[in-house]
Amino acid sequence: MHLAYPAVLAALLFCTGLYGVLARRNAILVLMSVELMLNAVNLNLVAFDVWLRDALHSGQALTLFTIAIAAAEIGIGLAIVLAVYRNRGSSDIDRLRDTAETDEAETLPGDADADDATHGTADQATAPAGKAKKAEATA
């Protein structure tokens, strides 16, 4: 098999994950995109390991370690996202702009007034983030 096929597939998967990390708004979707990027790296490691016929099989061993570290990362990441959601009532990373828990810190700078008009009712439960939602989320 040509080495170019897995290498190109890994590059394209990595860039897909890169787009997801930059463009997504929900923190859990960002975590999914990070998983795609890690998998692209794993595919590269396996392909180059099979090509080089390494006696130590460094590529496959590192792939197993990457998978385990990804599992740890997703556990910690989800715990952090859940803690943030419980404290702020939102997992929208565009609104988490400040370490302080104030209502001003959780509104976007551009659409402070357009927020209620456009996303008011049909939005996910995260839109009117603030103290009112926090009470509901912790209940």
């Binding site: 930059l22 463009a23 997504r24 708004r25 929900n26 859990i28 979707l29 975590l31 989800l78 996202v81 859940l82 959601y85 997992s91 990373i93 565009d94 551009g110 996303h119 049909a122 939005d123 996910q124 439960a125 995260t126 839109a127 989320a137």
Partner: peptide
């Protein structure tokens, strides 16, 4: 995680951010 943060089941209009 999606269920615990009460993600919407159906069509979500602002899944993508402005950038």
């Amino acid at each position: 995680g999606l269920m615990l943060t009460r993600a919407p089941i159906g069509h979500s209009p602002d899944a993508d951010s402005g950038n």
